[in-house]
Amino acid sequence: MNSVVIVSDSHGLTNELLEIKERHDPTYFIHCGDSELHPDSKELGGYIKVGGNCDFDPQFPDDQIVQVGDLTFYVTHGHLYNVKMNLMKLAYRAEEVQANVVCFGHSHVAGAEKIDQQLFINPGSIRMPRNRPDKTYAIVTWNTKEDISVTFYNTNGEVVEDMTYHTEL
């Protein structure tokens, strides 16, 4: 089974990023930006990472494309695509790079939804969540494109039950 841990908008937190890495053993870790840490910090070690609007080091890329098993992940923060307005610009970009799964942050609003044949995942924020009290991150797991699950966790490692999402691509 493939799995990817997705974190975003940690805004300077360090212990939480280390705890998440110790707690899980996925195929990959992804950080969708606004870590406010140095790209080479130990806390971001092992994460595929992008820069957000609060990350000023030019070593952070604006986006990354990662192949994990049979899925292509597009990772960006979201501020360059106006994700607080809607996902249209982000969807166009994800289609251009032929991504199956789109990981982004910026809004601090956790959620997962399928639009056409793409799965959009915003893990929320592990520091300053919006629209709910839980400080969250997400884990996407799959064996095949026909059986994909997104599970949200709080910073204590507990499943946020009402946010679990299942789909097929």
Rank of each mutant, 00 (worst) to 15 (best):
M1H: 03
I6N: 05
V7S: 03
V7N: 04
V7A: 00
V7M: 01
S8V: 02
S10E: 09
H11V: 13
G12Y: 11
G12K: 11
T14F: 06
N15H: 06
L17W: 13
E19F: 06
E19I: 04
I20F: 11
K21C: 08
E22P: 00
R23A: 13
R23I: 11
R23D: 07
R23T: 12
R23P: 02
H24T: 05
H24K: 12
D25I: 06
P26V: 09
Y28K: 15
Y28V: 15
G33M: 06
D34H: 09
S35H: 13
S35V: 11
S35A: 15
E36C: 15
E36D: 15
E36I: 14
L37Q: 14
H38E: 14
H38L: 12
P39M: 12
D40V: 05
D40Q: 12
E43Q: 14
E43G: 06
L44T: 06
L44S: 02
Y47V: 08
Y47Q: 06
I48K: 01
K49P: 03
K49M: 13
V50T: 03
G52A: 11
G52F: 02
N53I: 01
C54F: 13
D55T: 09
D55H: 04
F56C: 06
F56L: 07
F56D: 06
D57A: 14
D57Q: 12
P58H: 14
Q59K: 15
F60Y: 15
P61Q: 10
P61R: 13
D62H: 08
D62C: 04
I65Y: 01
L71Y: 01
L71W: 05
T72A: 07
T72S: 07
F73D: 01
V75Y: 07
G78L: 03
Y81L: 07
N82H: 14
N82P: 03
K84Y: 03
K84T: 05
M85F: 11
L87K: 12
L87R: 03
M88T: 12
L90I: 08
A91W: 09
A94T: 00
A94K: 05
E95Y: 11
V102F: 09
G105W: 00
H106C: 07
H106W: 03
H106S: 02
S107W: 00
S107Q: 07
H108Y: 08
V109W: 08
G111W: 13
A112T: 04
A112S: 14
K114V: 13
I115D: 02
D116R: 10
Q117V: 04
F120K: 02
N122V: 08
P123T: 07
M128E: 12
M128W: 13
P129L: 12
R130C: 05
N131Y: 14
R132F: 08
P133Q: 07
P133F: 05
K135M: 10
K135D: 09
T136H: 10
Y137T: 07
Y137R: 03
Y137N: 09
Y137L: 02
A138C: 08
I139G: 04
I139A: 02
V140C: 00
T141A: 01
T141D: 04
N143P: 00
K145N: 09
E146D: 13
D147K: 03
V150T: 03
V150R: 00
T151I: 11
F152E: 07
N154H: 03
T155H: 06
E158I: 04
E158A: 09
V160E: 02
T164Q: 13
Y165Q: 02
Y165W: 09
H166E: 08
